[in-house]
Amino acid sequence: MSEVLANTSKGHIEVRNFSLAYETIEGPVQAVTDTQIHVRPGEFVSIVGPSGCGKSTLLNAVAGFLKPTTGIVTVDGERVNGPSAERGMVFQQYSLFPWKTVRENVEFGLKMRGMPRSQRERAARTLLGLAGLEAFEKHYPEKLSGGMKQRVGIVRALATGPKVLLLDEPFGALDAQTRVIMQQILTNMWQRLKISVLFVTHDIDEAIFLSDRVYCMTARPGSIKAEIPIPLERPRQQSMMMSSEFLALRRGLMSLIREESLKAMGGEINDMGMQGLNIELHGHSLADVI
């Protein structure tokens, strides 16, 4: 196992002076502007924000799929120039290869690295065992439930021993119960591997429950509105979600996001509608919370 998951507890992500614009016929559209974030080695960091704020854009830039318009993305001081096995990625749509069995999916990264068949088979079995999937190694992904698919997705991303794990709303398509279990599994794997995680979600509870730190983004064009440390002790338990500490963090983040969501909807909401919402919004400003 150690040869597969050999990770030197590196994985320092830095995003500096980052902005990204899409070219359209009406000129460039700013998706993300003036953003700085960082993830320390072994840290679990989430990005939350209203839909369309560019959080996935930011993550895709860290993965190397998108080039920043300005600024720089580095991992351990090395500039990100394109996708690489050093940065494992988990997608919302699972994106398992339908023509490969569960084990072959997990083996894929090792195969690309040129590991001999017998060795990577053994490695994949070990990893699948960790995720409780050894009984399904010969199944094709189509036969699996959503939760199982995403466990395979996570295991596949971790198989090559990446420095960082990037997750783009990985549990967004799962039902609430499965989601809770998946969060626990992810936490578990993260603690075991001491890997840096950058996690994009729109679920505030999920962000707080999982993270050491949460970045909250503004409405489009997205930038960092707030950085909220999550001082909840680990290991975390489901019951913590009822604690006053958790609820206070939740209220704070909720109001931040609601502010931005309203901004994003902009003109759609007139004064009449805003008044009721504003009262509630100012009732729990972030200052009260932290």
Partner: peptide, 14 residues
């Protein structure tokens, strides 16, 4: 599916 291509790329596929 372009997402599958991306998945392969960040698993080190050329």
């Amino acid at each position: 599916d372009p997402v599958l291509v991306r998945a392969a790329q960040c698993l080190g596929a050329r």
